[in-house]
Design a binder for these strands. Structure first.
Lengths: 332, 332
DNA sequence: TTTTATTTTTGGAACGTTCCAATTATTGTG
DNA sequence: CACAATAATTGGAACGTTCCAAAAATAAAA
């Protein structure tokens, strides 16, 4: 056990022949430091092997560059895809993401955030658990935190919200099915507790009502948002309506489950029954039949989030609807 | 914009009628503080709404309760399953996980860790990217960090390692196939750059050589560790050996891909060709046919990690082989 | 009771940074 | 060149906690 002498700004300053204040200015890359001193300091940092101490910085300056990503459920493939993108983009703008998973529970979510407060995180990027109250989020905002909702909307919360254009997505996909001649088209999966369910369902309903007067054609089956949920939902759907022609799924994962069940029943997805997903997971283009779906660009969402992070001072809280694309493949 | 008066230990102390030192003692729940003062302090904390400032604490005490989880690839379902377990268990022992993804790149991994050093993380739980050098890890250890490798082993690194008993796993699964009368059994998926590949392959080889003299029966196909990798690998395997009878897969994901390809080719998995996975992902028991596989208990791994975190002072670096279970279902 | 041992409590220094107000160096102007 | 204006640099205080050594309170022993 050797004694570790920590190298501080003072050591760097001594080596560079400037004051510690100047070193600090360089570290926070202020523009009011001459090129010459900057070079000297940078060189000294290199030579001494100095490591910045964020704890000290954050303590004194009363702000950190820590961003908490509070995700509802890391087990969901789209969530992880989005999380990875978020984490990288946040890192690229000089901040750091600390990631936690609420497991879809409001209690765990609030306990988590309470503990995160001790770390003086400056912003929360949060996909709120079902039942999150606007007051809870507003409380954080009042304490001076920047709060950005992603994927899900909480009505009445004074926070920025970044979500895919869900309504357009299912509107497009349902329209595609209609154009292809399908009539008995069902909406499968998801449930009322999450805002995106309502939006995706709305897109489906809009398209259906626009083309058919007959309300009997629309059919909605709710389910868990898991593969197994999709499988069970598909079973239920086939029992209720054996003559179903196509299915608009709440998500790709739901579609995977539905397809699995179809195959078991010797029903050919894409041939006997058309099917469309939502999310465009990596696997969707590789499976067979390749899944027609709505593509959400997670990098675009991540970029929008970073935009908000960087505009933190502007108090405007806006809502960004990230555009989605219909990706036609062979499942319908 | 109201001015935020931060409540500090001094305020709490004043309210409780004790000194700030006593409050500090309570906060770090030291045992050398009387029950009476402890109650008073706790009450005062409650009343004042005091929030602990970890930055100040960490700055002064020169230790943090931050643990970095450096995961190779969050996109992999087993990784996320494990990560979620780790994050929760770490939280339950009073520490906090900060999660980053190296994307299987040593460069990104080392850049990441360099930045994490600024946050004074006290331990790294790391699933090392392929090609990670022992020296790199040892460097961290020498700087006083606790380093715990999970899932993958780096020979020569003086760190604790917690991995599933890979060899036993594939030994058991291969044996099961042999007992069921299969003979032409292949090993599918994974590649040499990762240590678990060698171990799982060894288990397969052990079992095969134990029962058959004929080396021609063993067959190994490498692939990416993705669903698509499994699909392509299975295709290659069927081309090379159309008379293959069963497949031991490197992972469940590989098995998913292989099964997908079989179904496309009108081959019935579990009937025409037996197949076994490794990991026991959540989906594996729900799919059809339900996948026979080797169960790794992620909570057990997480617990072992926490054990190491808590025994941090003991300098012993040990290797924990977490037991695995053969889960018989209907895919063979 | 006095003395000794043990348990609790305490104020001041310290951790490594940024902020602030003041000082010094540099540039521009007539 | 003198003077003002601006740019760059600086030392000391401050952020909120834990550590430390010493003091005070309590318990045990004589």
């Amino acid at each position: 056990m050797k004694k570790q002498e920590t190298i501080t700004v003072v050591d760097v300053a001594k080596k560079a022949g400037v004051s510690k204040s100047t070193v600090s200015l360089v570290l926070t890359n202020s523009n009011k430091v001459s090129e010459k001193s900057k070079r000297k300091v940078l060189k000294a940092i290199e030579e001494t092997g100095y490591v910045y101490n964020r704890d000290a910085a954050s303590l004194r300056s009363r702000r950190s560059n820590l961003v908490a990503i509070v995700i509802n459920d890391l087990t969901n493939p789209y969530s992880t895809q989005l999380t990875v993108a978020l984490e990288q983009q946040i890192r690229s703008i000089g901040m750091f993401a600390i990631l936690v998973s609420s497991g879809e529970s409001v209690e765990q979510q609030s306990e988590l955030i309470q503990r995160l407060e001790e770390y003086k995180v400056s912003a929360y990027v949060i996909c709120p658990a079902p039942g999150t109250s606007p007051d809870f989020l507003n409380g954080l905002v009042d304490k001076g935190r920047l709060v950005i909702n992603i994927m899900r909307e909480i009505q009445g919360a004074k926070v920025s919200t970044i979500i895919p254009d869900n309504v357009s997505g299912t509107y497009m996909s349902t329209n595609l099915l209609i154009k292809k001649g399908y009539k008995n088209i069902a909406f499968l999966g998801g449930n009322e507790s999450i805002s995106d369910y309502h939006q995706r369902l709305a897109g489906y309903n809009n398209a259906m009502h626009e083309h058919f007067q007959d309300d009997a054609l629309t059919q909605v089956i709710q389910s868990n948002t898991t593969r197994d949920g999709g499988r069970k939902g598909m079973k239920e759907l086939l029992n209720q309506s054996p003559n179903i022609e196509a299915v608009v799924c709440f998500s790709d994962v739901i579609a995977y489950g539905a397809i699995e069940y179809m195959k078991e029943q010797q029903i050919k997805p894409g041939v006997d029954i058309g099917i469309i997903g939502f999310d465009d997971l990596k696997d969707s283009q590789l499976m067979s039949p390749a899944l027609t779906t709505i593509h959400i660009d997670e990098n675009q969402i991540a970029r929008a989030v970073c935009q908000e992070l960087m505009d933190a001072n502007s108090n405007a809280r806006n809502k960004v609807l990230v555009g989605v694309d219909l990706i036609e493949r062979s499942s319908c």
